[in-house]
Each structure stands twice: as structure tokens, then as C-alpha cells.
Design a protein around this nucleic acid. Structure first.
Lengths: 251, 251
DNA sequence: TTCGAATATTTATACGGACAAATTGTCTCG
DNA sequence: CGAGACAATTTGTCCGTATAAATATTCGAA
């Protein structure tokens, strides 16, 4: 009962905003058209410019209009767009690994992408990467949680030398060491039969059900700088995600 | 080159905002403490109240402060919180099913949750649900994409009678028919061996790799009103998701 | 000491005015 | 017809002032 009709304290500019919202919703001011100018609104609502502008600010926040000097207030939506958002404070949270897990590096070295790997990595065949192979383990259980292949640009190869390497997501280490920040990330989840080499490393049967998660990290100009491929045996990993109906993510 | 240093046109209030941001970041105004009052800022920056307030508005939008009448401006963060957000305009988009897929209902009827089902549905054992079982198919391929179990509250059972039933997400149909809106949704993805009954229906081997996706839809007061469990054979479904670094989701 | 009323402080809302900057349209000149 | 100068319109920025509402503080009474 704290977020439902009745909450909004009354005030002049809120009233004006509400009436404009209604007019937009009902089509009096259609999408693509202009709202009346500030001067006109001042006259029709008998309010000061400050008050009118405060009302229009609400419409901007709701994503109903955009305003530009010399042009006016353009209606861009008839209703506040409903959005479902999922937000995390760090991509580590996104992965949903608890702090009790860590990576146990098996080996690392340079590798050149063949046609198949290039497809997974969404890069051109022949491109060089630095590959880190590791087993993800938990402090709590003896059995490994999964197998991780981490591909990073060769210039970032030194991340393996960091003391916190096994406990921190590699993309965060790259940010700390080289200033490369993640602007955008992508995840793919699919199921496959467990490949033989990974099966051997994890101690499960080849061809048994495996969950594979591919994560791609992009920098400033959509530059792909890291890809991780994680493969989990049955029962060792569940991905969960929540979405909230809202226009802005909750902090 | 359109979102990097240099973009911000200079103006009085932006300058003040920038200096306050810096002071907050450097700890001059620590988290939990109060910023100077509007009157003090007017004096120290030789600006009008309007200008000072405009500057403070920027800090609010960045999530650095909250303001309350009679109290002041409380610093709540030293830096704009970095958020990674994933947003969709409708939960149908979230599912990533293209429009060329549809549900082919096999059977439907009432069911009472036993202990095991109650765990999946996160409800008390003994609760009644209306279950719709269907095969998800594509216009393009002969092979079925997966098996779907849809559990809805019994009062919503009539959704199966809708003509568009097979082509529209059930939670949207419930919204249209009963006004029940989704405020919050949850997804779980894991791998398991294909259960025998589903294997039979889909024409694949029992125990072969299967991707299972559980989606829970919650209404106004966290009331769970629909759960769907979808099971896909290997190679028939890949879940993908993008996340953007931003404080607010892109419309 | 504790509770409540009165007081002080601070932001919220609202009015007025002025000039700058951005955009569009018009007009003139070649 | 096209380019550039000019004018008109509209929002952006900034100043001043006043009153209301929300919160914190002070102080008196029980």
C-alpha cells in the first residue's frame, strides 16, 4: 500500500503532468507530434514557466517526450514503456558463483583459432588468443563444479600471474591491470553431451548431459576482449535470474 | 566519440555538479554525511538557488545523493553505481522464442502438487494447479523444439479456450483475460537427463542431455500465479542474453 | 526524566523576469 | 536553383523572491 494509487502528493506541476499524460495516452497529442509550447501551456494552465517545465520534466523521465531547443516537445510514446529489467552491480554477480568457488588453473598458453573455435568466439579464423584452462571448484564440495576455458587477447596474458587470479573474475582483473572496461557482455546457454577431454578432467562419463555457458566481454568500441566457455556436469550448476517490472533498475 | 569526455556543454550548474561530484569522490563529503545546504552552496558558488538545485538534481540522477525537506542532501554513494542491465519490452522477448514457434497442446486438467512438484513450483504440497502440457514446435522444422508444462492457478484455467492460445505466452493471455499483471518473474536454467515420458513424446533417448528452463511469474503481492517448465533436447534451443553497462536501461 | 508543543532549519513548490543557444523557415543574392 | 545571411520561434540557462511542507531541535510541563 505504499506504491499504489494515492501515493502521489498533490502539486500544481504533478497535476499538469497528469493531464498531459492523459492527453498523450488518449491521442490528443499523437506520437510524433509536438506538445504545445511552454508559453502556450503557461497560458492554458495559468501556471508559471517553472511549473510547466517541472511538469514536462516528469514526462521526460517517463520516456513520453523528448525536448530540444528551437524545436519543441516531441511525443515519442503514448504510454510509459513497460520494461522488465534485470540488473546486477557487477558481472560477477551475474555469473551467480558464490565466493566459495575458485578456479584451479590446469594450463595456459597461446592458441590460434581454427574455424570451429572462431565460430564460438565470434572472431576471424587465424586470430591469436591466450587460453587459460581451469577447473572450477568449491570449498564445500570435493567434486569439481565445471571446466572453464578462458580466452583473452594476448596482450592481457599476464593476468594469470596475479596472486588473486583464481578467485576473481578475469575480466575484472583485466580492468584493474590494463584499464580495459567491459561496456557490454553477452551470454549463451545451451546443452550438449560432455566432450571427452572435459569428461576426463571432471571425472564424469563422456556424452553425459552437460550445461555449457559462453560469455563474451566487449570493451569500448564493441571490441571483444574475453570469452569464457564453462561446461558443467548435471546437477552441479543452476543459472537463475530475476526480472522486475520497472522503468529503472533498482539500485 | 559521442559519449566520451568533451561532450558535456559547459554551463554553470554542470560545473557545480562536477565539483560536487569530485568532492564526494575524494571524501570531502563522505557517504552518510550531509552536503552543504542550498543556501551555503549559493554563497560558496555565487550562484542562484535555481542553479544550485539544478546541479543537485544531476547528483540525484547519478544516484550519489538523496534529498529530503527539513533534512538536507545525504550522500549515499561516492561514485555513480555501475550497473549492468538487461531489459526487455516484454517477457515474450525474454524467452527468445521467435514468432515462428507455437505450442501444440497435448492435454490439460487439474492437478494437485505432490512434494516433488511443490518444490519445483515453490508452493506448499497439496495446492491445486491447472496443468497444460504441450509440445513446442516450429513452422520451419519437423522436429519438436521441446516439451512444455504450464501450471496456472485454477481460476485461470479458461485460457486454454482462447483462439490464440498456442501462439501467445500464457501469462499475457492471463493479463488480457483476467487483468492479472506480472510484476516480477524468475528463471532457472539447468541440465538433466531427459525424463522417460518427455523423451517418448519428443522422440529422443531417455537420459540424453536436456536443457530445462523453469519460469515463475509473480503478480502484485508476490503472488505466484504461473510456472512453466520447458525441456529441450540437445541442439534445439540456446538461451542468449545481452547486458549493457549503464545506470538506466535503454528504451 | 519523558512527552509534547513550539521553534528553527532545510528542501519543495511556485511566481516573476532576462538573455543565450538551437532550430526552422524565409529571403536575398549570385 | 543553391548558398548564405537573417529573422522568428522555442527550449536552455540563470537570476530574484516568496510561501509551504517536512524534519530536526529546543524547551517547558507533568
Amino acid at each position: 500500500m505504499a506504491d499504489t494509487p494515492g501515493k502521489a502528493r498533490s502539486s500544481r506541476y504533478r497535476d499538469i503532468a497528469a493531464r498531459l499524460q492523459k492527453d498523450i495516452r488518449l491521442g490528443t497529442y499523437a506520437v510524433g507530434n509536438l506538445l504545445p509550447t511552454e508559453t502556450e501551456l503557461m497560458a492554458s494552465y495559468k501556471a508559471s514557466r517553472q511549473t510547466v517545465r517541472e511538469a514536462l520534466r516528469i514526462l521526460i523521465e517517463q520516456g513520453l517526450i523528448v525536448r530540444r531547443a528551437g524545436l519543441g516537445s516531441v511525443v515519442i510514446a503514448a504510454e510509459p514503456p513497460v520494461l522488465f529489467t534485470h540488473s546486477v552491480k557487477s558481472l560477477g554477480e551475474w555469473l551467480r558463483y558464490s565466493n566459495e568457488t575458485y578456479r584451479d588453473v590446469v594450463q595456459s598458453g597461446d592458441i590460434v583459432a581454427d574455424r570451429k573455435l572462431a565460430a564460438h568466439l565470434k572472431c576471424e579464423p587465424g586470430k591469436s588468443w591466450f587460453l587459460i584452462e581451469a577447473v572450477r571448484r568449491s570449498d564445500q564440495f570435493a567434486a569439481p563444479l565445471g571446466w572453464t576455458e578462458i580466452y583473452v587477447l594476448r596482450k592481457f596474458a599476464d593476468v594469470v600471474k596475479r596472486s588473486d587470479h583464481g578467485r576473481t573474475p578475469v575480466h575484472e582483473q583485466i580492468t584493474k591491470m590494463y584499464g580495459q572496461v567491459t561496456e557490454h557482455a553477452q551470454m549463451e546457454i545451451f546443452v550438449r553431451g560432455m566432450p571427452a577431454p572435459i569428461a576426463k578432467a571432471l571425472g564424469v562419463k563422456t556424452g553425459s548431459p552437460a550445461l555449457t555457458v559462453v560469455r563474451r566481454y566487449y570493451g569500448q568500441r564493441e571490441e571483444l576482449f574475453e570469452v569464457t566457455i564453462t561446461t558443467h556436469p548435471e546437477g552441479r550448476y543452476t543459472y537463475t535470474m530475476d526480472m522486475q517490472r520497472s522503468q529503472r533498475p533498482r539500485l
